[in-house]
Amino acid sequence: MADENDNERMDDNQKSDKMFTLKKWNAVAMWSWDVECDTCAICRVQVMDACLRCQAESKKDSYGKQDCVVVWGECNHSFHYCCMSLWVKQNNRCPLCQQEWSIQRMGK
């Protein structure tokens, strides 16, 4: 299969006078949460890492982090979702700006 494809493309290339043609590209990209401040103000852990609670639990399961996503409020402040969901039970305001807390979007 692959060889056939190669041959076809080779024919294409011979027609063109280009010396080099890009055939395959393996790019690398790093993702991180699109946040203004990279530490969670509630647990003081970087939002890219799991929050303190999840870290403690995920000692048994090293992939525990997946579930520890980030949440953005309307005020554009961001926290660990786990941290914020505990926070709002006591005080439904953003810990940073005291605005009424409502979720703008969740990390996925």
Binding site: R9, M10, N13, F20, T21, L22, K23, K24, W25, N26, A27, V28, A29, M30, W31, S32, W33, D34, V69, V70, W72, R105, M106, G107, K108
Partner: peptide, 18 residues
Amino acid sequence: HSGRKLQWQPTLGHCVLK
């Protein structure tokens, strides 16, 4: 994946050229 940002890392990319 919402809420993420991507940063390209050109040092690590590799290609196949004809």
